[in-house]
Design a protein around this nucleic acid. Structure first.
Lengths: 228, 228, 228, 228
DNA sequence: TATGAATGAGATTTCATTCAT
DNA sequence: AATGAATGAAATCTCATTCAT
């Protein structure tokens, strides 16, 4: 790609960022060379140093910004929702949709933490902890209210996040399943997992169960995002 | 200086393999240098080439052997078990224990597929498909028998395997939880997920449910492997 | 340290080319190391890669450019000359002078074809064929006109070119003989060879010679070994 | 090739020699590795050192033995022949046949002199000088007797040997031409070249030819390029 | 006579990075 | 804001050679 005439600094910076995400996603951080990156945006590799201090900070910037974005948007989506089950549904839906939309960033943030040096890794791990904390909080709250049945909220958090994040290993836009179907499938697995499983054939004896029990597990008032 | 007294080809080969696993686990394949590897086993880096053709085949050998081992042992553990729920429990327990025992191999096999070249990757992906096929078969069988409630067995397979495999991102031997506790926690999430959820307070009204329902879902006669 | 003041890409490229010719001439392509080459032009060896893709293409570029130059100049020298004998003289003189002037290039082009990989070798061999074709054409033309007596123009071509090219195995500028003397000596051998040792102007007295003359040039008393 | 059971030292030595000739011919001395060579004779590369001191002496042994063989056989073929023309014919025939028969040795001796170190090269060059001396002697003798017309016997020697040796650049057994035809073709070129295109049996009627004949062979109307 | 493990030097090549212009 | 020449370190890999067994 040749240099766009009239490009300015900010535009170039953005182009570098995007090309960086693309190439790290495709080849891995170690395997991506700055020459490749420079070629992708139509620069000489030396010129990249006007836009970052070194390769490492490019990676760090990408990952940190992504994590902050992820965290911020998750918090925004959860804001105002109290019910743990609803919060869990929202979290799942958010996480899945975000991952399906920003495959590359998400993949990088998961795979390249190892490539960050000590100090940078600490920052990113901190952000990840906070993000995991959101889910862990939901699980603990639900357990405390007797809605969820989770023995080890920390372990369950890791487990669920691994499950949901795993989508970026296989999902490709335009596949057989819609995002909604995928969200439903995953969410069912998560909800089932933490509620310890609904009766398989509730049809047989729904009335025998207390009225509030089942509706409570799939309330009519699902948050919109979880509906799709 | 010629060979160190007592040194021995087979022993060196094994040492290289182990050091390779360790260093790739620690630094990543791309980031591990053959100098490091050679130093780790007390050789000059050129000497490594007595033991492999190139860095790439070292990785491939490690990953392929691991995948074949994993697959073989999983099939052995499942052999003779018919009931889908029992099979699922066995699968989970096997997968988790294997991963907790061979953290590094497992981590490498998951993270470094990208570093394999086309042909090698194809082999490994094939093995992985077969492994996933075990779980998918269980889920389909269970769904066909009405024991499981899974909409998309393929997606559920990916989801469950991601969840279980995620353990290698955080587990360290000697932690607070025993392997048994961890297996139980994860297994509960999986079983709950695919059975669509047991009543949360079965204590309240176990007798009300048809006798065959619940035992079927958590039989007293758990296969031994799943007990731990 | 950044670039030396006054240094300049084109100049460096030319210096590398010349040093390459010199070192390959002196040590052979395989035996010349890029470290040597870099040292010769005052660079680090890695810096050479600004100027060529790899060692192989350096050789190829040198040889191909040389062959094209040789071919072009030969064609230019022959242009407009019709008489085969005159053309042959021009060819010999051109070839010899060119070889005496560009000893190293010529030597490389002859010795290092083996070091070229398949594809590159094909190109160079093609150019050489075209060059040989010039001489072969002259010989065929002369034979057709009855001026030359060559049984196998192809073999004669190889033979003559080998003879003329052989000069680069011993010639050193400043020796006892002038270039003119050398050209005369070689040319006489060539002309004599293809005119069959017959008088050049048989026109003067062809009838005087016995009819059987040519047979006589292969006397019955040949030593046995020469008969085969 | 695996090791022949019951092979003994002498047989192995010979096998190494032959494999060496083959591989150096094919790849060049620098490009041939001792591992290749060892594999070719079914040994480990270290074992080769029972048979030579180092790679260099292997080359030297091959080349020197070849040169001594060549020289010895040439002298044998020429022994007892007095007439310079006959001697020249014998020399040509011998040289050509020898080269067609022992392509690889001859090729190596010509191409790899450069790969010999100083001392070894001196020996080989000395042998070559002696071999060239045979031809030079013939030419001088013929010139002295008025049979040949060679201005610069040394240059003519180089020229003729280059021509004849050139055969190893293109000859392949089983081609269109028989060895006899090839010998005839080359020999005609040589004889014609040194007899100056004069009638071969001037003895019969030297006086008949105009004194100025020879000047005539260098006509005034030479193209300019050929003059120098 | 031969093996096979190992060395140590050196090969080509790639890379992040610097800096005068 | 960008170039392009250059560095210097390091990477993978090959090789001739050694030597205990």
């Amino acid at each position: 790609m040749a240099r766009t005439i009239g490009s300015n600094g900010a535009r170039t910076a953005e182009a570098i960022r995007q090309a960086g995400v693309k190439l790290i996603y495709k080849h891995g951080y170690e395997a991506m060379s700055l020459r490749q990156l420079a070629a992708e945006v139509g620069l000489q590799s030396g010129s990249l140093y006007k836009y970052f201090d070194n390769k490492q900070t490019l990676l760090f910037d990408i990952v940190r910004d992504h994590m902050e974005d992820l965290l911020g948007k998750a918090e925004a989506d959860l804001a105002g929702i109290e019910d743990p089950l609803a919060r869990l549904r929202v979290f799942c839906a958010f996480h899945l949709r975000y991952h399906m939309t920003r495959l590359a960033h998400v993949f990088i943030a998961n795979m390249e933490i190892r490539s960050l040096d000590e100090a940078h890794r600490a920052v990113v791990v901190g952000l990840r902890r906070r993000y995991e904390g959101l889910l862990e909080g939901i699980l603990r709250q639900g357990a405390a209210q007797g809605v969820f049945e989770v023995r080890e909220p920390k372990v369950a958090t890791y487990a669920i996040i691994s499950m949901l994040t795993g989508i970026c290993m296989w999902y490709l836009p335009g596949g057989r399943l819609s995002q909604d179907e995928i969200v439903d499938t995953y969410t069912a697995l998560v909800i089932g997992g933490v509620t310890g499983g609904a009766p398989l054939q509730p049809l047989a004896a729904p009335a025998e169960l207390p009225e509030r029990e089942k509706p409570a597990r799939r309330p009519a008032s699902l948050p919109k995002a979880a509906r799709t």
